[in-house]
Amino acid sequence: MNPAIEVRSLAKHFGHVRAVDDLSFDVAEGRVTGFLGPNGSGKTTTLRMLLGLVAPSSGSATFGGVPYRDLDRPLCHVGAVLEATSFHPTRRAADHLRSVAIAARLPASRVRAVLELVGLSDVARRRVGTFSLGMRQRLELATAVLGDPRVLILDEPANGLDPQGIQWLRTFIRYQASLGRAILVSSHLLSEMEETVDDVVIVSEGRLVLQTTLADLASTAGGAPGMRVRTPELARLSAVLAGYGVAARQVGVDEVVVDGATPEWLGPVLAQAQIVVYELTRQQNRLEEVFLGLTHVPPSVHGATSPSPSPSPSPSPGLTS
């Protein structure tokens, strides 16, 4: 099956800033693809290039082989949500939708249908300026699906939503995918998208880091368990572990992670060395940590919430399982 979106060697420079650099990836039909990367990694710029809003410095982005601006009736092919604030504040919600529907030569019945779909029928006559962030986001989504498009592009749609809003959004996205639509949804938090996406495209500093399925990413994440130890004797612990050829990775003031270790192995080691332990827990490498690791966040940032001068010998790279 042809991919719904093909991005090939896409690049964009803003002066000296390489916002997007030689980026290539595919988005498959009928699947939700998470477009993930930290803030400033070029997600928004990429999505805007896809939609012909920003001119690429080089490379191409096509929908079934056709660039956005050459699509016949583009809103019937691609729907997009880009920002939560792109409404005229004194225009009524229904009028906003009608203006888009008229421009796209869509029947007025579509306006009623999408208002119904996102649950805004009752407030359709209200001015958008009086809407909450969540309502605006739903109006954006309504606008995006006006033309009943085969592809949906959503840029950080969860930003600023409350937990109910995020739950609603997940249901909405899964429902859209169940209709066979290809959905590309960006986020700087994998955890936000974990339950929603099928595939992931991970970018960092404008470059592709990894394109894979969420299932594969999860199995990578699950493959590296370890033990988390809180102890006042970090230095001695490191020395003892070094004796076994195992490294401890410091993650807090008095906390280390021993990658690859099991409780059955580490417990006796600690008892034998008579090291005081405040806390001993299983460390499951969570998806978010894999994601952070992939997007080049240096290890020291893991402990950034409680930084301290390292009292122990600097931790060497962790043991791999």
Partner: peptide, 8 residues
């Protein structure tokens, strides 16, 4: 943005 999306 909406205007350009409808009329690229």
């Amino acid at each position: 943005t909406a205007a350009f999306l409808a009329s690229p």
